[in-house]
């Protein structure tokens, strides 16, 4: 997997095709919208989705952690699909979560799906985290207060499509403008919101760039202010 560099606020960030964001200078890895236990949430409502999403998401996270070996992890909110998600987790999944995050400096940014964090997890929970020029929060897009402030957020599950000769192909994507980065959702059962959706209008108002997740690399395309990918 080849991560793509993104220079923003004099900092060098790396976008990984797995959907996580890296900040090498801080040995930090950020990941958004795990939505753990989404399947069992639906199962309780009569939709028996395969109960493997938590395991799948955690094993993908484990891979990313192994590859990038960060010392600090920022979870950008909606890590759990609902308030009782943690209680529904299978014992081995919970053990895996603890094993993965236990040795690390973990920050749980709170999201709309998990405004209160389950107890007994490693790390600390907060509404947002600011490190140097970069603020990590769940829902981005509000006016940025500080000069030179940069925002890294999740929540919207951005996806974009590229027109190819065999039709349009749609993938989850990073959405970046000069002061903001929105991460794709990392959870196995998380869908996407097209970057042209009005809900994402606050991002890249003067144009930006999308980075579609591929198997081994990102596919990048400019995003015009009129919200049409360039091709």
């Amino acid at each position: 997997m080849i991560a793509a560099p993104l220079h923003i606020a004099s900092e060098r960030l790396m976008l990984c095709p797995s959907g996580v964001l890296l900040w090498p200078a801080q040995r930090l890895l950020a990941v958004a919208d795990l939505h753990l236990e989404k399947a069992s949430h639906h199962a309780a409502r009569g939709r028996m989705l395969p109960p493997y999403d938590t395991r799948e998401t955690l094993s993908r996270l484990a891979q990313a952690l192994r590859r990038h070996a960060p010392s600090r992890v920022v979870l950008l909110g909606d890590s759990f699909h609902d308030a009782s998600a943690e209680q529904r987790m299978a014992a081995e999944d919970r053990a895996m979560l603890l094993r993965l995050l236990g040795p690390l400096d973990v920050t749980w940014v709170l999201g709309n799906h998990d405004p209160v964090l389950p107890t007994g997890l490693p790390g600390q929970a907060m509404e947002s985290l600011t490190l140097g020029p970069i603020t990590f929060r769940h829902i981005g897009g509000a006016p940025l207060a500080r000069y030179n402030e940069v925002e890294v957020s999740g929540h919207f599950h951005p996806k974009a499509s590229l027109e190819t000769r065999a039709g349009a192909i749609s993938r989850p994507c990073f959405l970046a403008d000069p002061r903001r980065v929105v991460l794709p959702a990392f959870g196995a059962f998380t869908g996407g919101l097209d970057v042209r959706d009005p809900a994402l209008a606050a991002f890249a108002p003067r144009g930006g760039r999308v980075f579609l997740l591929g198997r081994d690399r990102l596919y990048s395309a400019p995003l015009g202010p009129n919200r049409l990918p360039a091709i």
């Binding site: 190819t164 065999a166 192909i169 579609l212 591929g214 081994d216 690399r217 596919y219 395309a221």
Partner: peptide, 11 residues
């Protein structure tokens, strides 16, 4: 993926 790579290269 190959199609995406091609489209991205075209852009």
């Amino acid at each position: 993926d190959a199609l995406l790579a091609e489209a991205a290269a075209l852009v």
